[in-house]
Design a binder for these strands. Structure first.
Lengths: 150, 150
DNA sequence: CTCTACAGTTACTTTTGGAAACTAGTCACT
DNA sequence: AGTGACTAGTTTCCAAAAGTAACTGTAGAG
């Protein structure tokens, strides 16, 4: 059997989404430098809700990329850590993230020039739309005149 | 200035989502082995809708990771290709995807054993819930008796 | 005796994603 | 002049996903 993420029915698709998804990627990245408990992880991955963190961790645990260990000491601690496979994926993710961080200055610049160009284009389009509205109005006036004559 | 994807307000967060998001990652991956036109890309990334592909490509273009070139030949073709930064990110993504593909057998196995364990746990919980329902019923009966006596 | 921390779950709301129809511009055929 | 085809999208509408906030339940601190 051959796995291909570009095929819509391949079982690897949902796994890729778990790994590269919004919170999954950050959870894996956070666990890369050591095991963490639920709330510690929540503090580390800023902005994640309890619900989504629980959901992402459950998905990663199901995929065998994260190990969940309940410590029955008080107050009921749960430690999350990476499995060997999870560790490799986390490393690759962190590598990507590191490169992204290095490229941020250029990316921000690209975004700004894109937004500026778009603003210009929108303004230009508003002008032509206005012109079209004018010609439409003129056409309507002509039609009215024709109608009045009839 | 220091960029950190783990911070909720960092500008790198949305960019990471563009790159690792569901369709963004596959679009970058597909463009890694040569430029493609819109519909060719759509055929390559199976299951993507026109709307989402257009949206993802616009985001990647804005981030300066993908270049969009309109060819004014008939019938109006648009070619998408990777910028140097996009190319590096695509390579890293494909590396991650390749490793994921190699790990799929183990992952599928993990999913199956997880699902099996969950099914067991759910069954067990249904049992205790049933027991609780019984005791609740008994308690209600006691309360009714007491009420009838009063 | 209230307040906090632990690890979640549940109910409700808002945002997003996907399917299908529609737009726009150009040619080719009839 | 009208019809249809091909391109690359946009729009519309509804279901699915994500986010918000409140609740569960135990126990230690102040």
């Amino acid at each position: 059997m051959e796995y291909d993420v570009f095929s819509s029915t391949c079982p690897s698709r949902p796994v890729l989404e778990d790994v590269t998804g919004r919170w999954g990627a950050l959870a894996l990245g956070a666990l890369a430098d050591g095991p963490l408990r639920f709330n510690a992880l929540r503090r580390h991955v800023q902005g994640v809700s309890q619900k989504m963190l629980a959901q992402s961790l459950q998905a990663l645990e199901r995929d065998g990329l994260v190990k969940r260990e309940v410590q029955s000491t008080f107050p009921l601690q749960v430690e999350y850590s990476l499995t060997p496979t999870g560790e490799v994926l986390a490393t690759k993710l962190l590598d990507l993230i590191a490169y992204l961080r290095g490229s941020m200055p250029g990316i921000v610049e690209a975004q700004q020039s894109y937004d500026k160009a778009r603003a210009q284009a929108d303004k230009a389009r508003a002008q032509t739309d206005k012109a079209h509205a004018q010609t439409d109005k003129a056409r309507a006036a002509q039609a009215d005149k024709a109608h009045a004559q009839a």
